[in-house]
């Protein structure tokens, strides 16, 4: 809890990461507009564009997640405290999750405004559920990968290069789950199969990250 408070405070003070993520995602929507040369999109294409944009925007946050800890001695200070080391994983994943939620609060309406053909209104609840599950996946994998990458040379390369393949199953599931929600005459509920895959993915990697994270902090 303490670490999470500090992280959110740090982001409030510096105001770097989240605005960059938001700006990045909006620019990406514009790029997709020109790249696809379409005024509006729907269905599977919309699901894919939204998911891919959020995924890449999340990578920006992942790259920054541990930089302050590494460069300003936060790791050492944390390790010196009589605190369970898993607290760092939970705090960082929560911080990243919070960043992603803020990002989506801005980026999803912007997506609806700029690119999406059908209205966002009816499928909103279903979309929130799908994105929340996707955010868990991004937060867990992002934290794990970021913790690995931050102690390597060329860390801004290592993070995405490992993180993106790991996230492909989550990407598939999110895009597929979002597709019928964003279709022209779509249903209001996401397909259960893909929600289940996403939930399974979240569960497996959350447990795995919890099991291996301690080893990334030791020296």
């Amino acid at each position: 809890m303490t670490v999470l408070r500090k992280d959110l405070l740090l982001e409030l003070r510096t105001f770097e990461t989240v605005p960059a993520m938001i700006l990045f995602s909006i620019v990406t929507f514009v790029i997709f507009h020109f790249g696809l040369n379409q005024a509006t999109i729907d269905g599977q294409l919309a699901g894919g564009v939204l998911t891919v944009t959020l995924l890449f925007a999340a990578m920006l946050g992942v790259n920054r997640l541990f930089v302050a800890e590494r460069e300003q001695g936060g790791f050492d200070a944390f390790l010196l405290a009589p605190v369970d080391r898993s607290a760092m994983l939970i705090a960082k994943a929560s911080a990243l999750f919070a960043f992603l939620v803020v990002l989506e609060v801005v980026a999803v309406p912007a997506f609806g405004l700029l690119l999406l053909g059908p209205s966002l209104g009816p499928p909103l609840l279903g979309l929130i559920a799908v994105l929340a599950l996707a955010d868990v996946a991004l937060a867990v994998i992002g934290t794990l990968v970021s913790a690995i990458a931050v102690n390597t040379r060329a860390r801004d390369l290592v993070g995405p290069v490992i993180g993106l393949p790991l996230l492909i199953p989550a990407l598939i599931a999110t895009a597929r789950a979002a597709a019928p929600l964003l279709a022209v005459h779509g249903s209001g509920a996401p397909p259960g199969k893909w929600v289940a895959v996403l939930a399974l993915y979240d569960l497996v990697f959350a447990l795995l990250a919890y099991a291996v994270f301690d080893f990334l902090l030791e020296d």
């Binding site: 690995i148 102690n151 490992i162 990697f205 099991a211 291996v212 990334l216």
Partner: peptide, 9 residues
């Protein structure tokens, strides 16, 4: 250590 964490994941 890091490679092992990667390999397990």
């Amino acid at each position: 250590r890091y490679a092992s964490v990667f390999a397990v994941t």
